[in-house]
Lab assay of single mutants.
Amino acid sequence: MPVRRGHVAPQNTFLDTIIRKFEGQSRKFIIANARVENCAVIYCNDGFCELCGYSRAEVMQRPCTCDFLHGPRTQRRAAAQIAQALLGAEERKVEIAFYRKDGSCFLCLVDVVPVKNEDGAVIMFILNFEVVMEKDMVGSPAHDTNHRGPPTSWLAPGRAKTFRLKLPALLALTARESSVRSGGAGGAGAPGAVVVDVDLTPAAPSSESLALDEVTAMDNHVAGLGPAEERRALVGPGSPPRSAPGQLPSPRAHSLNPDASGSSCSLARTRSRESCASVRRASSADDIEAMRAGVLPPPPRHASTGAMHPLRSGLLNSTSDSDLVRYRTISKIPQITLNFVDLKGDPFLASPTSDREIIAPKIKERTHNVTEKVTQVLSLGADVLPEYKLQAPRIHRWTILHYSPFKAVWDWLILLLVIYTAVFTPYSAAFLLKETEEGPPATECGYACQPLAVVDLIVDIMFIVDILINFRTTYVNANEEVVSHPGRIAVHYFKGWFLIDMVAAIPFDLLI
């Protein structure tokens, strides 16, 4: 008679799926529990143990900040960024110097990925580790590398530091407007667009060049630039800015003055950032001319202004700041037409079709709590990747769950009947059967004279019903998954307890 339990259901295979997918890609990662103190490590794979030199037993239950890997060259700011990422709910990448158990130093890129439950609360953290440099290539500990984003994938490793954006290309926007319009339909740009040429040739750093990471940081200074100062900065030398009595002219307006920039070969870094931020506020060169004239017309309804409409929906549905990093990277690809469009465009503009998908598509409701890094690593669709929660398995109709209350009560009843059979069957065979043979035949009273025979008949009927119930009862397979398919249940029961239950259900007393 089957006594099969499996009270692990309803099970959740999400954690096993993450481990299996990460292991298949030869990654070095740990999984931490966000619900406990210090976000203790609950799993670390073999790749991480080989990377740091510690065994799994030495890593388990330690804080996922990996303070046991810190050393003299470990930056405090990087460690603080990892700790801050564990307090938030967004994906974050941090470069930090770690030390192995043998004392060797290596520069590592740590990717902190939160995993949320159905309520939107962070319950786990996945920390992925990628070695960037070994100890002989690690720089000085005073050099802070965590304020910069990861290198873009479309640049060669040897040319990542030679990417320079020439400031004269930004200063000569109005001069290039006529050349853009003359391109017409034969050019790649839309009317009114501004073409910015980027020099990728390796050259020595000069005062006129600005690194790509500095251009990325310009967006942080746009908020500090007032509207009046932006307007004066875009007017140009024809209309000098008016300053109040006793007030000095704005240095932001002076930063885009061609006369002032041409007199000296070098520009201050602050002026460069502010000038680029001011130019980015204009949607095209037409807006710059309109600002000089004193009238700013409404933005025209053409394809170039609607190019950012799908980007707005993608940004609203993005799951991490990696989408913004990807957008900034692609927006700086050289030799393309940049349409400086305000994100607050007309909502009635139709979304044009684009061959290049900048932001990841909208994630469906079932995966809105899973970050983009987890979705990318697992390579699963929205119909396959579940949320991290207890999910009731989908069972067929008329199927009994093996952990249901009805099955528990039924098993206790069958257990009592088995005990009765084990006690009274030998007793009936030894004593009652002998008395029946010696006594007179009682054929007239039937079952009324033999109450134990009636009980034995009921017990046999219950055993037959138990066999039928076992054909529709779920079970737990070797992978700790609840199986509810009727065919698989029948095959599993035939290979197991079916023969024993059938022999126990045969009414031998009635056959004798």
Rank of each mutant, 00 (worst) to 15 (best):
333 I>P: 15
308 M>Q: 11
22 F>Q: 06
215 V>R: 06
367 T>H: 11
295 V>G: 12
153 S>I: 04
104 S>F: 06
244 A>G: 09
151 P>N: 11
358 I>K: 06
160 A>K: 06
142 A>N: 15
329 T>E: 07
161 K>R: 12
183 G>H: 10
113 V>T: 08
158 G>I: 15
265 C>E: 07
21 K>S: 13
69 L>I: 01
287 D>A: 05
116 K>S: 13
129 F>M: 05
57 A>L: 07
200 L>D: 11
350 A>M: 13
175 A>E: 15
225 L>W: 15
108 C>R: 01
50 E>K: 10
51 L>Y: 01
23 E>W: 01
314 G>H: 06
365 E>P: 14
23 E>C: 06
26 S>V: 05
108 C>Q: 01
104 S>W: 01
42 I>D: 01
134 E>N: 13
177 E>S: 14
117 N>K: 13
250 S>M: 15
41 V>Q: 01
71 G>M: 01
182 S>E: 06
69 L>G: 01
353 T>A: 14
321 D>G: 12
13 T>V: 14
343 L>M: 12
83 A>Y: 06
286 D>E: 14
128 N>C: 09
115 V>I: 11
102 D>I: 01
74 T>F: 01
249 P>I: 11
280 R>G: 10
330 I>A: 11
317 N>D: 15
364 K>G: 14
82 I>T: 01
95 E>L: 09
19 I>N: 01
317 N>S: 07
8 V>D: 15
211 A>C: 07
37 E>C: 05
377 V>E: 03
132 V>M: 07
11 Q>F: 12
9 A>M: 14
294 G>V: 09
48 F>H: 01
386 P>I: 01
245 P>A: 12
198 V>L: 06
162 T>C: 12
349 L>Q: 05
238 G>R: 13
328 R>N: 12
211 A>H: 15
206 S>Q: 15
382 A>E: 15
274 E>H: 05
373 K>R: 10
371 T>K: 12
324 L>D: 10
168 P>S: 15
222 V>W: 09
54 Y>I: 01
169 A>R: 15
71 G>Y: 01
144 D>Y: 06
147 H>P: 03
179 S>M: 06
275 S>I: 14
372 E>K: 10
255 S>I: 05
126 I>H: 01
270 T>F: 14
82 I>C: 01
384 V>W: 09
184 G>P: 14
33 N>A: 07
134 E>Q: 07
301 R>L: 12
328 R>V: 05
21 K>W: 08
61 Q>V: 03
277 A>W: 11
83 A>F: 06
332 K>H: 10
220 N>H: 06
117 N>D: 06
270 T>G: 14
156 A>L: 14
119 D>M: 15
376 Q>K: 10
13 T>C: 13
14 F>W: 14
356 R>Q: 07
313 S>A: 11
243 S>I: 01
89 A>R: 14
49 C>P: 01
160 A>H: 05
208 E>D: 15
168 P>I: 01
119 D>N: 05
316 L>C: 05
106 F>T: 01
173 L>M: 13
64 C>P: 14
68 F>R: 01
24 G>R: 07
190 A>R: 06
137 M>L: 15
42 I>N: 01
77 R>D: 05
177 E>W: 10
338 L>W: 05
366 R>T: 14
96 I>N: 02
89 A>Y: 14
127 L>F: 03
225 L>P: 05
99 Y>I: 01
346 D>V: 11
41 V>F: 01
56 R>W: 01
71 G>Q: 01
59 V>N: 01
69 L>D: 01
361 P>R: 15
195 V>T: 15
110 V>P: 01
284 S>E: 15
278 S>T: 07
237 P>E: 14
133 M>W: 15
327 Y>C: 15
195 V>P: 06
203 A>C: 10
243 S>V: 05
52 C>Y: 05
332 K>W: 01
385 L>N: 05
286 D>P: 07
62 R>M: 08
121 A>I: 07
31 I>K: 01
187 G>P: 03
237 P>Y: 11
335 Q>T: 11
195 V>M: 03
292 R>H: 14
142 A>C: 15
131 V>M: 15
379 S>E: 03
346 D>N: 04
367 T>F: 10
167 L>I: 14
195 V>R: 06
237 P>L: 12
360 A>G: 04
310 P>Y: 13
132 V>L: 06
4 R>P: 15
263 S>Q: 13
270 T>L: 05
140 S>R: 07
34 A>P: 15
188 A>Y: 05
97 A>T: 12
146 N>I: 13
15 L>E: 01
298 P>D: 11
295 V>K: 11
97 A>F: 15
226 G>K: 05
253 A>S: 11
384 V>Q: 08
300 P>V: 15
296 L>N: 06
329 T>H: 14
357 E>Y: 14
185 A>E: 12
108 C>N: 01
96 I>G: 01
185 A>R: 06
168 P>M: 01
54 Y>K: 01
215 V>F: 06
54 Y>D: 01
118 E>Q: 10
101 K>V: 01
149 G>S: 07
287 D>I: 07
203 A>S: 06
266 S>W: 04
150 P>S: 08
222 V>K: 15
21 K>M: 08
134 E>T: 15
215 V>Q: 08
239 S>R: 07
30 I>L: 11
150 P>D: 09
88 G>R: 14
72 P>L: 01
142 A>T: 13
53 G>R: 01
65 T>A: 08
324 L>C: 13
292 R>T: 04
131 V>D: 15
59 V>D: 01
322 S>Q: 14
13 T>A: 07
154 W>K: 15
297 P>Y: 07
347 P>R: 11
222 V>T: 06
211 A>N: 15
292 R>A: 14
7 H>V: 07
185 A>H: 14
145 T>G: 08
64 C>W: 01
351 S>N: 15
316 L>N: 11
164 R>S: 12
89 A>M: 14
357 E>K: 09
142 A>L: 08
16 D>Y: 10
47 G>S: 11
328 R>Q: 11
194 V>R: 01
43 Y>E: 01
83 A>S: 12
52 C>T: 14
36 V>F: 01
61 Q>N: 09
275 S>V: 07
169 A>G: 15
184 G>F: 11
34 A>S: 13
37 E>W: 05
271 R>I: 15
214 E>K: 05
300 P>C: 07
378 L>T: 02
89 A>G: 14
339 N>V: 01
25 Q>G: 07
365 E>L: 07
140 S>I: 11
216 T>Y: 08
34 A>W: 01
153 S>P: 13
256 L>A: 07
350 A>N: 08
261 S>H: 11
386 P>Q: 01
194 V>N: 03
360 A>S: 04
211 A>S: 13
39 C>M: 08
8 V>L: 07
57 A>F: 08
207 S>T: 12
328 R>S: 14
161 K>W: 10
70 H>S: 05
351 S>W: 07
107 L>H: 14
199 D>I: 01
362 K>Y: 11
148 R>I: 07
378 L>I: 10
359 I>V: 07
250 S>H: 03
48 F>T: 01
294 G>F: 07
220 N>V: 06
121 A>S: 13
65 T>V: 13
367 T>C: 03
71 G>W: 01
69 L>E: 01
277 A>E: 12
151 P>K: 15
205 P>L: 06
386 P>L: 01
41 V>N: 01
88 G>E: 13
137 M>S: 14
40 A>E: 05
24 G>M: 14
163 F>T: 15
109 L>F: 15
223 A>D: 09
220 N>A: 12
386 P>K: 03
20 R>M: 07
146 N>P: 06
251 P>G: 11
243 S>L: 09
60 M>V: 12
77 R>F: 09
274 E>I: 05
61 Q>L: 12
62 R>A: 09
240 P>H: 15
